[in-house]
Computed example of a mutant assay.
Amino acid sequence: MRQIILDTETTGLEPSQGHRIIEFAGLEMVNRKLTGRHLHLYFHPDRAIDPDAERVHGISLDFLSDKPRFSSTGREVVDFIRDAELIIHNAPFDVGFLNAEFDRIGIAPVTQLCAGVIDTLAMARDQFPGKRNNLDALCDRFDIDRSNRTLHGALIDCELLAEVYLSMTRGQESLAMDIDLDDGPLDLQHGAGFERKPLTVLATGGAELAEHRGYLDDLDKIVKGSCLWRTLESGEGAA
Rank of each mutant, 00 (worst) to 15 (best):
E211N: 07
G214K: 12
G237T: 09
S72L: 07
A108L: 08
I49P: 03
I118C: 10
S167L: 10
E195T: 14
L61H: 02
V95H: 12
H19V: 00
H89V: 05
D7R: 12
E76Y: 11
F43A: 02
P15T: 07
P109A: 10
Q112W: 03
T73D: 14
P185H: 08
R37K: 15
H19S: 09
T150E: 11
I88N: 02
G206Q: 15
T150Y: 11
F43R: 07
L64W: 07
G206F: 13
D182F: 08
K224C: 10
G12A: 09
D145E: 12
A207G: 05
K67Y: 14
G153Q: 06
L166N: 10
L181D: 07
H152E: 02
E85C: 11
I22W: 03
D140T: 06
H57E: 03
T73K: 15
L186H: 05
A210C: 04
M123A: 04
G12H: 11
E195N: 09
V95T: 09
V201I: 15
F97C: 03
A122P: 00
P198I: 05
E85Q: 14
I222M: 12
D157I: 04
Q127E: 02
R55G: 01
A210K: 12
T150N: 06
D62H: 14
I105H: 02
D140P: 00
K131Q: 15
A91S: 13
K33V: 13
L216S: 03
